[in-house]
Design a binder for these strands. Structure first.
Lengths: 196, 196
DNA sequence: CTAACTAACTAATAATCGTTAGTTTTGGAT
DNA sequence: ATCCAAAACTAACGATTATTAGTTAGTTAG
């Protein structure tokens, strides 16, 4: 009757295997058969642990979207300078990306295959996250800390880089996390031009 | 017997319709039935104009990959300053993105569904493009024009933004092209920090 | 020992997929 | 009016999909 978290349960194994394949071939391009084969079992055996293929996707996306949302609210409410908040957001992205790069790739595209209810929830979380992000950027601009650029465009530039990190992280795995953080932060904030 | 380019042939209509749906639901998530319905015809009628579903994807991806490759080589060989080359590359991305945003989204993910031969060709073009890009960045760094950062990471930051542009362009369509170019260029090169 | 549970299996389901074959409709040129 | 080709159609194909039902081996608890 133990109800432990069982972080390494069979279900979690399935979800992680699926995440790897989803990332490689997309959700629709990945069959339950291929997931089962990767685990050395037959397809229907998966249903002893999961309710449906879509449940795997929901779990992956909503778990991560919730984490992003919660951590963002923490940062938003923290009693620190707005520019420092931006700094922490970047660190957050890098942390979560290194922690689960496969799931990050899914968040960009495969959310369209969520069931309607889950998709709605996912998009709400994403929207809240972006609104928080926008408000922090606006604060930085108002204080004269950031360039007076259109905040939507600024958010786009930052998020483009942060959301693509998962691809980079797996290609150049030898990169140090601290080094990566510093490079991304200075690259985005200070710019790529050399001021001699 | 006319062999005109027929830019607005039925085949091109199919390809553009498909591109729109591919972008929305992904290649694997889009059925030929949905493409046919969007055009008001029955599924098998598509085969009077195309050879296969994969041919549509090949056409979209290889056409654009070739364009990028050719235009990049033009820029690379041009007798202009290296920093000016970087400037032109950014303009190139914005130009092609505004011209065909649907196809741009496909280039990020759906190339994995190309047939082996086409996939190989696509990846070769992409590789050449990135190598050219890297070499230009290296020149800029050698001249002291750009910050002495790891060139792969620098390329990653720039390409992340440029390759995500298609999503931005459709969401904020009212944005002026010139304005967009200037914002992206200054945002990336000068950085987001305000130097007061 | 046995009863219950877990997690694997085989077999089969309906639905959908891309694709082919064969046929009819359409519209313009002779 | 007729001919022809382009482009639509209907009907059907085999393959694959996610999923269900029913069964069995292995492990654990009482």
């Amino acid at each position: 009757m133990e109800r432990s978290p069982e972080l390494h349960s069979r279900k979690q194994q399935i979800i992680q295997t699926a995440a790897k394949l989803f990332r490689k071939n997309g959700f629709k391009g990945t069959s339950l058969k291929s997931i089962a084969e990767e685990m050395g079992i037959k397809t229907p055996s998966l249903y002893n642990h999961i309710a449906s293929k879509n449940e795997i996707l929901s779990h992956l996306l909503l778990t991560n979207a919730n984490t992003f949302h919660l951590r963002m609210e923490e940062i938003q409410k923290a009693n620190i300078d707005s520019l420092q908040k931006l700094d922490r957001i970047i660190s957050l992205h890098i942390e979560l990306t290194l922690q689960n790069p496969d799931a990050m790739g899914l968040m960009l595209n495969d959310w369209v295959h969520l069931d309607p209810k889950d998709r709605e929830e996912y998009l709400e979380l994403r929207e809240k996250y972006e609104q928080n992000f926008l408000s922090i950027l606006q604060q930085c601009i108002d204080k004269g800390q950031l360039v007076p650029m259109n905040t939507n465009l600024m958010l786009f530039i930052i998020l483009s880089t942060l959301r693509s990190l998962y691809a980079w992280c797996t290609r150049y795995r030898d990169f140090n996390r601290i080094e990566l953080e510093n490079s991304v932060k200075t690259g985005l904030l200070e710019g790529l031009l050399n001021k001699y």
